[in-house]
């Protein structure tokens, strides 16, 4: 569905490239995530893929179209949700969606249905200018699925939303995924990447450091950890042991033999911990 070879993008000639020589492929039906901190080059990549930014260097093929030859028709099967919401403040939620639907040549979804879906029921006749940031973001998100896109670009779909609404958005994305929609998703939230993405690319400073499934990453980089709480001399002691470390394993066996164990559970490394391990930097 998406094929990117050696893509680079510079905003100003003297400056550092915002995206530097990246390559990746996204299969049909796959949800592919770009995980990286702010300024890593995620939105820039989405910009080039959606044709908002001119392709400067590299080969990019999206949904069967070479993006260096602009063809508006391709957007009939593409949906784009933006990091910064962009709806007409002077139009109501419903008018925003109804107008946008008219721009497509394919069958579109009912505006009211989408409004209900993203939890804006009852606000359909309110002008978007009166919406909170989160509501505008949801409207922008709803708009991106109006044409039943085969390929869906989601730039930070849950950023800035409160947890309950973020969960709704996650459910919607999962439901679309079940219908076979291919998604390109950017986020700096490891949970989103972990829960929604079939494969994740770690991106930092415009470069992709690795691409793999969240599960493989955890198997490969995650050390299995065991948290143990036990009694020693009437006091509760807490310790964490790495199961891949021989000395730790022996110590753990010792503790189990000699002391009264109160709690004990294993813990997987999070994607963020793996990200730090791979790139040397955190996600914020």
């Amino acid at each position: 569905m998406i094929s990117v070879k050696n893509l680079s993008h510079l905003y100003n000639k003297e400056g550092k490239p915002a995206v530097n020589n990246i390559s990746f492929e996204v299969e049909k039906g796959e949800t592919f995530g770009f995980l990286g901190p702010s300024g890593a080059g995620k939105s820039t990549t989405q910009g080039v893929l959606t044709g908002l930014l001119k392709l400067q260097k590299g080969e990019v093929n999206v949904a069967g179209y070479d993006v260096s030859h602009v063809q508006n028709k391709r957007f009939n099967k593409i949906g784009v949700s933006f990091e910064q919401s962009n709806v007409y403040g002077k139009l109501t939620a419903k008018e925003n969606l109804e107008f946008y639907a008219k721009l497509f040549d394919v069958e579109t979804r009912d505006a009211q249905e989408l409004i209900d879906l993203v939890g804006l029921s009852g606000k359909e006749n309110v002008r978007a200018g009166e919406f909170s940031k989160g509501m505008k973001h949801r409207l922008t998100f709803a708009r991106s699925m109006i044409n039943n896109p085969e390929l869906w670009f989601l730039d930070e779909p849950t950023t800035g939303l409160d947890p309950a609404i973020a969960a709704t958005i996650k459910d919607i994305i999962n439901a679309q995924k079940a219908k076979g929609t291919t998604a390109f998703l950017t986020t700096h939230n490891m949970y989103i990447a972990d829960e929604l993405c079939d494969r994740v690319a770690f991106i930092i400073d415009g470069e992709i450091k690795l691409i793999d499934t969240p599960k493989n990453l955890k198997l490969k980089y995650g050390q299995k950890l065991v948290d143990v709480e036990y009694l020693e001399g009437g006091k509760t002691k807490k310790e964490t042991f790495k199961t891949i470390d021989e000395a730790d394993r022996n110590k753990l066996a010792e503790v189990i033999k000699k002391h009264d164990i109160q709690t004990m559970h294993t813990k997987e490394a999070t994607l963020e911990e793996i990200f730090i391990q791979v790139t040397g930097r955190g996600l914020v």
Partner: peptide
């Protein structure tokens, strides 16, 4: 300011 041109640019309309 509202960024709506971008939304237009990713629609099938020119």
């Amino acid at each position: 300011g509202e960024g709506v041109i971008k939304a237009f640019a990713v629609s099938p309309s020119a």
